[in-house]
């Protein structure tokens, strides 16, 4: 990646609180204009990493640059380019939607002639009708949308969104990702943390955090391949395969792992191959040769939840059970 295209560069970053390692040796780069998904379970160090990147926490070791500067030495000008949506609703319950937005605009020093921009944002997050509602009277989803509007008010280049979709319904979650895509189209770079593994599909790059460690940074497709060792093909057949057929399938040169029967008692076989588009015609020929009737064959995209579980399994060292 060209250095000019890198908006965030993190190298071997670690942080300790009270001698407890919260983030350990994290390294990654994020290109300008990308949506970077930071996925991991609660307590895995996602928020801590965001806080280091926004200059709130100082790392114990490692280096990082955001917008070409170390976050601990951000100037007001650099901060002006950053938008940050914290995990919890961080606005005022006694102010209306409009007043909260005005406040956010003011702390970023936006000139007072900003009503057009604020109206645009309210339209964008679909809160125009609710502009006079007090913060305390907003629903959870409305609060998240207001937070998003407040984050975007000063047109930041780089937006940190800490679990923006936590606790909201799937429809609204989808809308949020649509908004993020729009922002990306406008040239923004988004750093989005989430516990919803499925949201990895919306990202250009995904970092997987487990227990303070970054397991990998990959494209969503790359994640699947990392999890299963290749692409997954599901072949539905009329009869149950013999054991020797399964072994023969597993021995095919493009098959990456042992062939397994389809789950849920369905008739068929699941194969991990290096390239599904090339493997499918070859497999069909092989079945024809072996007198196996294929009902259908297709590339299977395992849900990211499964991908995540696979990845965790792969990267978790086996427990030592040899006590005594």
């Amino acid at each position: 990646m060209n250095n000019n295209d890198t908006i965030i560069h993190v190298d071997n970053l670690s942080v300790e609180f009270n001698k407890t390692k919260v983030v350990q040796e994290v390294s990654f780069e994020i290109p300008r204009g990308a949506i970077f998904g930071f996925i991991g379970p609660s307590g895995s160090g996602k928020t801590t990493t965001v806080r280091m990147l926004t200059g709130f926490y100082q790392p114990t070791t490692g280096e990082m640059t955001v917008l070409g500067h170390s976050p601990t030495q951000f100037t007001a000008k650099t901060r002006q380019k950053i938008g940050y949506m914290p995990q919890q609703f961080a606005l005022y319950p006694e102010l209306t939607v409009w007043e909260n937005l005005q406040f956010a605009a003011s702390i970023y020093g936006m000139p007072f002639k900003r009503d057009v921009r604020l109206n645009e944002l309210l339209e964008f997050v679909e809160l125009s009708e609710d502009r006079n509602k007090l913060g305390r009277n907003l629903s959870g989803g409305m609060k998240r949308r207001l937070s998003l509007a407040a984050t975007l008010v000063h047109r930041p280049e780089l937006i940190f969104l800490d679990e923006p979709t936590a606790g909201i319904d799937p429809v609204l979650r989808r809308k949020f990702w649509d908004h993020f895509k729009t922002l990306q189209d406008d040239g923004c770079t988004l750093f989005v943390t989430t516990q919803y593994v499925g949201e990895a599909a919306y990202c250009d790059y995904v970092g997987v955090m487990i227990q303070g460690r970054l397991l990998m940074v990959e494209t969503p497709q790359g994640l699947r391949q990392q999890a299963y060792g290749g692409e997954v093909v599901d072949m539905h057949i009329k009869q149950r395969l013999l054991h020797k057929d399964l072994i023969a399938l597993s021995d095919l040169p493009f098959v990456q792992a042992e062939a397994t029967e389809l789950p849920d008692d369905r008739l068929g076989v699941r194969l991990v191959v290096n390239d599904a588009s090339h493997a499918i015609p070859t497999l069909l020929k092989w079945c024809e040769h072996e007198y196996i009737t294929v009902e259908s064959i297709e590339e299977y995209h395992p849900p990211f939840d499964d991908v995540f579980v696979e990845l965790v399994k792969k990267h978790t060292p086996p427990k030592d059970v040899s006590h005594g």
Binding site: F56, R79, Q80, Y84, F89, A90, I107, Y108
Partner: peptide, 14 residues
């Protein structure tokens, strides 16, 4: 308590 201090830290606010 509201969490707004977190916003102040990130914003260009002294």
């Amino acid at each position: 308590q509201l969490g707004t201090m977190e916003l102040f830290y990130v914003a260009p606010l002294s």
